[in-house]
Design a protein around this nucleic acid. Structure first.
Lengths: 160, 160
DNA sequence: GCAAACTGCTTGTAAACTGCAAGCGGAATA
DNA sequence: TATTCCGCTTGCAGTTTACAAGCAGTTTGC
């Protein structure tokens, strides 16, 4: 892996800077979609099958995702986020807040993004703990940020 | 501009998700490079001339950058960040922190990124005020975060 | 006043990446 | 045993990226 420079922002761009990587990570992280089929079927943006396969492969090579076998289904692969990917929670929060503010985002999806951003570091830490539970086998935390974000999403659907 | 979805993260990726946009914005923001020539000559990653021209055009179309004339040089164009681009400061901070932590970043450049991240919202606000001064004609703030980051960079060069 | 250098690009060309549609081998299900 | 599920792969056309070269208008140096 030859890198263009040692600048941290450039390195991040080299890993994440394309049209799909962050979107796939978003779906695993916030949608809790864990298999190829789930990711494909629930893709809001309609990701193509070859792109999804290629991105999952690249994310594994970059150390953001690992694959594990599904005990009930020999054919199915379960994708897990690594600590490196879970550490993107603050990036996702800031990027979501920025997109909500400056781009034509759907009000309902913005509600989720804004809830995550306004929760700040305490909420991000709780979410991190939940992701470690879901993806890395850490103990189950008392709080479910995914459920809270879903509640914010549904509440925004009620009063639009 | 047809967008793939109304998700804020997806929209952000559609605007910023390529191999050069964030790098160019970084150079304008942190390097204070304001002309085509400066951006080209000081590009750490060696951006090609056509890519730089194309990215500046796209960033203007997306509303992240504006062009203004240099009064002392009829030929030269000065590029300014818009409020929309200045609002990326927290994103840059988080992305830089993430890259420093998980990718093979240069210690000296990491020092800058870490200083920005650890300063947190107070430092980001001061930097935002400085960028509004440099790019939007706002009043000059008392504090120069650019100078502080440069000091962190030089300090890291002393004790490597 | 004229040549050289500066400034901000554009143009060609090859390679890589993206996006769409179709298909495919093995595993589970009816 | 036939059908559906599952995770991809393949082919192909179009777009984007990358490198190198060149170019018109402006300013500088003498």
């Amino acid at each position: 892996m030859d890198r263009r420079s040692g600048c941290p922002i450039n390195l991040s761009v080299e890993v994440l800077g394309d049209r799909w990587s962050l979107v796939v990570l978003r779906d695993i992280m916030f949608g809790n979609f864990r298999t190829y089929g789930e990711l494909h079927a629930n893709s809001l943006e309609g990701i193509a099958t070859n792109i999804l396969a290629n991105r999952l492969k690249r994310l594994m090579e970059e150390g953001l995702v690992t694959a594990s076998a599904d005990p009930t289904h020999k054919q199915r692969t379960i994708y897990n986020l690594t600590e490196m990917a879970i550490a993107l929670v603050p990036v996702m929060a800031q990027l979501g807040a920025w997109g909500s503010r400056f781009l034509p985002a759907s009000p309902q999806l913005s509600a989720r993004a804004i809830a995550l951003a306004e929760g700040g570091p305490p909420l991000w830490d709780a979410f991190t703990a939940e992701l470690r539970y879901l993806h890395l086998g850490a103990p189950k935390p008392p709080r479910s940020v995914l459920a809270e974000l879903d509640a914010a999403y549904r509440a925004a659907g009620q009063n639009p």
